[in-house]
Design a protein around this nucleic acid. Structure first.
Length: 591
RNA sequence: GCGCCUGUAGCUCAGCGGAUAGAGCGCUUGCCUCCGGAGCAAGAGGGCGCUGGUUCGAUCCCAGCCAGGCGCACCA
């Protein structure tokens, strides 16, 4: 990396100045920072070292300080000019050689360009989405879905082993599942021809009687829809699917048989549809983990017993409490209720112990901000169970509020107005546009999504700008071949012909890629990459405008220059493609 | 009351303690015999919620206040 070269040169300059008695000794504890200036006029790189050294040296005139450093800056192969600017910034202007040489690295590493091995040895489990199995994946889930998915790719790019997991809250004591499957059961009966009496949803509405499907000819007794049942259309869809599978076989089943059947079938269908919706969004999970499996293997019980044995739990008021206040939580929490049922957190502790026991060294959970109050509790539980809570990172994505044409949409599965990720967004604007849309901003910002606006603007989605830039690169290479050019390795090309600012801008951007990838991974900030992608696309468009690659009537580019530019085009193609792959966006070759 | 997140251009949002605060959309103007116009060039538009503080330097860090969101269960 060129920045480490510059840091070393600056270090030498400081030492030289000290030897010449112009500066006091500057220890290694003072970090030298190199940054890329926002504005190109301030050089390729700059350093604020003279400003930061004011206190340590006792020299209050930072320009004077800067001069002392510059005076002792060693001769070297990279820096053509070193200027003092503003209050004492050192601006480095570099020979383009280092940029040209970047093409060699990019070509050699190809699809591995940008990756590194700093996280080798880490096994990371990212659990995300984990929506309740009582309905479809909503648009709101899109944010966590794409965040987790890209984060997994990012961490892989840094050398970690990563898996994606979805947790299914299907515990047997889950009331919501009973209500949900009961709702499906009623709708199923509707498909058998029973009219359904739907109670008023709220004070302002009235009871509705819906006819059976098909409309009954013979009189069939009507069935009452549960008062707090799930009213969404998707409930009918599941019922219809089940009806298609089993016909009227359940008509004569006993109440117990029906309940048991619908519980299982409803869960299966819901999960299948969730998996399908996420798949359409480009998100695939390595494991779908059933909460019920923890109970089936007695893991919850065992985990509670262990906490008790280790003295982290106690009985009070008929319940079993976790001494979570010993582990950073603000108060103790109930593990087993006085009715002897385990709480959600008890199961969750067992689940996270299970994650660690599977050999994961680091756990990342992505939750909605509404679960914030739960973080300290789970971390305390994990700590009590003997694991370091530092190895459990909980990312809280801020809420996504839905707006339709400027009007707030109050979502809710019970009420039935779920805006679905797949049906209402992905199917309309496509996977790439939908992903890019969510990846555009930080998960820490509460976001507003206007589905109608998102659809209307889909053609203006920046994703097309980026994909377009990639397609053009591919197209130039294809056209070159048609015109009889053979792509030469960057090594055999006259690289020093690439001196146009537009060319150097592109090259500079390409050299930033590994650092961008690393910082996006480190800070869990995929949105930086979408911004970076747009900037790169913009620079590429500038390059197309200013630098004709293939010879034409008006611009008879000499063959040597064409070859050099083709190598540049190819390098850019590699980087842009790698970037799009990490983001899970299709690197299209034609649009 | 306590905790977390947020407040930057008309809208949606970037901004990694630094030099003239950015992008996309929208708006205005110009550019299609030429590798893809889903493009390019130029312009109008904000001084970063408010007040203090730390710092050579604050949109960024700290404190207080104002505003919005989300939490503070023997629900999941």
């Amino acid at each position: 990396m060129i920045t480490s070269v510059l840091i070393a040169l600056l270090r030498t300059a400081l030492d030289n100045a000290h030897s010449a008695d112009e500066l006091p000794l500057i220890g290694d504890d003072i970090a030298i920072q190199i940054e890329t200036p926002r504005n190109k006029q301030f050089g390729d790189y700059s350093s604020n070292i003279a400003l930061t050294l004011k206190k340590a040296t006792g020299i209050s005139d930072s320009r004077d300080l800067a001069q002392r450093i510059v005076r002792h800056f060693p001769e070297n192969a990279h820096v053509t000019r070193l200027e003092i600017a503003g209050r004492g910034f050192l601006n480095f202007y570099l020979k383009p050689t280092w940029l040209h040489d970047a093409m060699l690295t990019i070509e050699a590493q190809d699809s591995a360009y940008g990756t590194n091995s700093t996280l080798n040895g880490e096994t990371i489990l990212i659990e995300f989405v984990s929506a309740n199995p009582t309905g479809p994946i909503s648009v709101v889930n899109g944010r966590a879905a794409v965040l987790g998915d890209v984060l997994a790719s990012l961490l892989k790019s840094q050398g970690a082993k990563v898996s994606r997991e979805y947790y299914i809250n299907d515990a047997l004591n889950s009331l919501q599942l009973e209500k949900f499957s009961a709702s499906v059961a009623v709708r199923y009966s509707q498909y058998l021809g029973h009219p359904v009496v739907v109670p008023p949803a709220d004070e302002d509405s009235e009871e509705v009687i819906e006819a059976g499907i098909p409309e009954t000819i013979a009189e069939k007794p009507s069935i009452h829809f549960p008062k707090d049942g799930y009213r969404g259309e998707y409930v009918k869809d599941i019922a219809r699917d089940i009806y298609a599978e089993v016909g009227d076989r359940l008509e004569s089943a006993t109440e117990e048989e029906r309940t048991a059947y619908f519980r299982t079938a409803t869960l299966e269908h819901t999960i299948a549809s969730q998996r399908g919706a996420l798949g359409a969004f480009g998100v695939e999970f390595d494991t779908w983990f059933y909460e019920s499996s923890l109970y089936a293997e007695n893991s919850v019980e065992k985990s509670i017993e262990r906490l008790k044995a280790q003295g982290h739990a106690y009985e009070k008021e008929g319940a079993l409490w976790l001494k979570s206040s010993d582990f950073g939580d603000e108060k103790d929490r109930v593990l087993v209720r006085s009715n002897e049922k385990a709480t959600y957190v008890a199961a969750d502790i067992a689940y996270h112990v299970n994650k660690f026991e599977r050999g994961n060294t680091k756990l990342i959970n992505i939750w909605g901000a509404d679960h914030h109050g739960y973080v300290a509790r789970l971390k305390a539980g994990v700590a009590a169970a003997g694991y370091d809570p530092k190895n459990l990172d909980i990312i809280l994505t801020q809420m996504v509020s839905l707006v339709r044409d400027g009007e707030a949409v109050i979502g809710g599965k019970r009420k039935g107005n779920v805006i679905e990720l797949k049906e209402d967004l992905v199917d309309d604007i496509g996977r790439d546009a939908a992903r890019f849309y969510f990846l555009l901003n930080s998960y820490e910002t509460p976001a507003t999504v206007d589905v109608e606006l998102a659809k209307r603007q889909s053609n203006d989605n920046p994703v097309y700008y980026v994909q377009y830039a990639h397609a053009r690169l591919v197209n130039i290479l294809r056209r070159a071949e048609e015109q009889g050019f053979t792509l030469q390795p960057a090594e055999r090309v006259e690289r020093d012909r690439l001196i146009d600012p537009a060319e150097l801008d592109v090259l500079r951007k390409l050299t930033d890629y590994p650092a961008e990838l690393t910082s996006a991974a480190k800070e869990y900030a995929p949105h930086r990459l979408t911004r970076y992608a747009m900037e790169m696309a913009s620079l590429l468009n500038g390059f197309y405008e200013n630098c004709r690659v293939l010879p034409s009537k008006d611009e008879p580019t000499p063959p040597e220059l064409t070859q050099a530019r083709l190598a540049l085009v190819n390098a850019a193609r590699i980087v842009l493609r790698n970037l799009l792959v990490v983001l899970g966006i299709t690197p299209v070759e034609k649009m």
